[in-house]
Design a protein around this nucleic acid. Structure first.
Lengths: 209, 209
DNA sequence: GTCTATAGTTAGATAGAC
DNA sequence: GTCTATCTAACTATAGAC
């Protein structure tokens, strides 16, 4: 890892705990192991480090939908079919994957906290935070459930309300356990119970395995 | 409103947007309409203003369960009975009351944002935030649903999972729309749809009105 | 209880040696 | 690309007049 990368990494860690303003350039430099003045050979200002983090996050988000194995918009029918015959255990594994992806990915979980803190004073961050952690997940899942209902895997309900019932508990648990890896097991237990409930509420009996 | 009260009020407003560290004593004094040095006749430090806010919030929380009309622990049977024969419209009104209470109460909604920002660096705030906005609501509703299931108003399900399905969407919407009063109508529409879904999923058909 | 003035400290950022 | 030294500005807080 280059010094420049190390600066970005340590800055994100500190920003995600204390926020942008309360994190000093000296604290970042100390964490990296250089003097604060040396840091200005890599970045012209503290704000530029922050902007770099946001830019990295945008790139990460572009990869994300690929990495997590979510299908793209063009083959929704195939995707819904793929999930159509999921057992409870498979649905739990699927929800765990989404949950742990947000919770354990170092970049994402630190950025969650940082964006959560800065959203009220920074309109750009507000937009990014809302899009990544609220809008996109709900919208994707609503489309997926809509297709799964059409194919008969789930009984007929409002897909948007279904998506909310699936995602809101994940969002709640992410808010609660983000940065608390010691309590990860507790979080996963609650998630499993929640998904079991979801499965029983929505799974089309005539199609169930 | 006394000058001291005005300081607390303006400080909370600024803290809830920029956070504690990024809010200067001068900015608070400007908002109040006095010089920053005058502020020290009322408080000995910026931290003392913050602590006063937290203390006010603790008091507010003690009143809250009374004000919102939630029954106390001793008459749970009566409470469950009271909610037992709720129509969909009444359940929607109930959820709107909880939602708007957190969203529109000036003290609570600003404190939500402040606590949300400071939780990662301040263990005391983390505890308060988690208790008020996560643990207590879920725990109360789980007990209520448990009793309502026992009385036959709702069909048999895991009360904790039910409580999560009821509260997590409220929490999600509060996170999303806190400080965005212009989008309040949109939030309430989503909430209504969500509660309708909840009602249809859980309401015991044999008991429904 | 407000003001002006200022002390004391720390933060972000730059200059220049090596 | 790191260091020491330093500048400048901003911030918290105090002193003392009115």
């Amino acid at each position: 890892m280059t010094t420049k990368e190390k600066i970005v990494d340590e800055a994100l860690t500190l920003f995600s705990i204390n926020g942008f303003k309360a994190t000093t350039v000296k604290a970042i430099a100390d964490a990296v192991g250089i003097k604060d003045s040396s840091l200005y050979k890599h970045f012209s200002s503290k704000k530029e480090i922050f902007d770099t983090i946001v830019e990295r996050m945008r790139e990460k988000m572009a990869e994300m939908s690929v990495e997590i194995g979510l299908p793209d918009e063009n083959d929704f029918l195939k995707a819904a079919s793929k999930y159509a015959n999921m057992s409870l255990e498979e649905l739990q594994a699927f929800s765990r994957m989404i949950f742990l992806f947000y919770l354990k990915d170092d970049l994402i979980s630190r950025f969650w906290r940082l964006a959560n803190m800065e959203q009220y004073s920074d309109p750009e961050i507000y937009e990014i935070y809302r899009n990544i952690f609220m809008e996109e997940s709900i919208a994707y899942q609503a489309k997926l459930f809509n297709e799964m209902i059409r194919q008969g895997s789930f009984s007929a309900h409002d897909p948007k309300a279904m998506a909310m019932n699936f995602y809101a508990p994940i969002f709640f648990l992410l808010s609660k356990y983000n940065g608390r890896s010691a309590e990860e097991k507790e979080a996963l237990d609650i998630l499993d119970r929640q998904v079991e409930e979801f499965y029983h509420l929505y799974r089309n009996k005539y199609n169930a395995s």
